[in-house]
Amino acid sequence: MNITLEGKKALVTASSGGIGYAIAKGLAGSGATVFINGRSEHSVLAAKDRLLAELPEASLRTAAADLSGAAGCENLIRAVPEVDILVNNAGIYGAGDFFETGDEVWDAYWQMNVMSGVRLSRAYLPAMRDNGWGRIVFISSESARNIPADMIHYGVSKTALLALSRGIAKRVAGSGVTVNAVLPGPTLSDGFEAMVADEMARTGKSLEQVGRDFVRAHRPSSVLDRASSVEEVANMVVYACSEQASATSGAALRVDGGVVDDIV
């Protein structure tokens, strides 16, 4: 399968590192002009330089904006007024006991993880619909279906993305625009590496081995028996953004290694 996105403009939120960076690289490698987004000008320029070192022919732009509130989303929309592909990857996560997680935390997660995608999708969808082609992907999580007891606020925000993507897909049915959610499982992202840095230093284990140990201890239902790479998640997203995925819309596409124990 030869995926080509020549002539398409793509915006990947929170793409200066981690899964977002891998998605930006995958889309750029398929020929799209990619807007790299992050909170600071420094982070997006550094990501652009890094990606150009890996893909010298890539067509890249930068758009720094903090998407944790309406003002930052508006800044991004003004900087990038129209795209063909929108990947809503921006999000925050962290553990917290339900009884100690106050309204301000719930609101912060809702604004970043859910409302940033609502605001950007609402802004970019009309032009996609008028053009008869577009792709929107929400990066959800296996935690959307396998709610962690120690991160209920996070899980709820990711479950909301499944409803959001399905609802928007129905709203633009027949328009040539597809809307899907991708659900990664445990992934060897920058955030995961930072989380286990002390353990790696203490044990001398590689990131991959620590990832495998984590999956076996905390996600024993995994049939992959290891954590995914960011590239493996990006591959699913690039496919969902392709012409070849034109009959896939309103779907929850799992890249969770089989952690969620069902067959649908």
Rank of each mutant, 00 (worst) to 15 (best):
A58H: 04
D256G: 10
K8R: 15
T178E: 00
D225F: 07
E74R: 10
L224H: 08
M195E: 15
V114A: 04
L11R: 03
G29K: 05
G29V: 07
N113T: 09
A46Y: 01
G204V: 03
G117T: 09
S222H: 07
R171N: 15
Y154D: 03
S43F: 07
E232R: 09
V177P: 02
E6W: 08
H153P: 03
H42I: 13
D150E: 11
A65H: 06
V105D: 03
F35K: 03
S30C: 15
G18C: 06
Q244K: 10
D103P: 04
V264N: 07
D103T: 10
G18Y: 06
S68G: 15
F35P: 00
A201L: 12
A234G: 06
R129E: 13
S206G: 15
Y21I: 02
A10D: 07
S16N: 06
L52H: 10
K48S: 13
S15P: 05
A194T: 08
G7L: 15
N75L: 09
G167R: 00
S140G: 13
V182S: 01
V237S: 01
L60S: 03
G134M: 02
A28N: 00
A227F: 11
S116A: 14
S15E: 02
H153S: 12
P81W: 06
W110L: 09
K170L: 15
R166K: 11
Q111F: 07
S16V: 00
G174C: 09
Y124G: 07
V237L: 02
V12Y: 09
M195L: 15
V210W: 02
A163L: 13
P56Y: 07
S246V: 10
S229R: 08
G155F: 04
A53N: 10
S221W: 06
N146T: 06
V83H: 04
T203I: 14
L67H: 08
Y21N: 01
F138S: 00
R216S: 15
N2Q: 14
I263K: 08
I85N: 01
T248Y: 00
Y239C: 01
V230L: 07
T248G: 00
V237H: 01
W133Y: 12
M115K: 09
V87Y: 02
D130N: 08
D107R: 15
N180C: 00
G26H: 04
H42R: 12
A127Y: 00
V238G: 08
V238A: 14
I23M: 10
F99I: 14
V114Y: 05
I23E: 00
S228V: 07
E208D: 14
I147M: 14
V34C: 10
R166Q: 05
I147C: 14
G31Q: 04
V177S: 03
A64P: 08
V80I: 11
V87F: 08
L120I: 04
A14H: 06
T187Q: 06
I92A: 12
P184Y: 02
L45E: 15
G31N: 05
G96Q: 07
R219C: 15
G20N: 08
G91H: 05
A79M: 12
G96R: 02
T101V: 10
Q244D: 12
G72R: 06
P126Q: 05
A90S: 14
E104T: 15
P220W: 00
P186W: 02
A53T: 05
K158M: 01
K48C: 12
D225H: 13
A173H: 14
A90N: 08
T248I: 01
P184V: 03
D49T: 11
A251C: 08
R202N: 12
L60R: 04
G117R: 02
T33K: 13
V137N: 00
L51F: 12
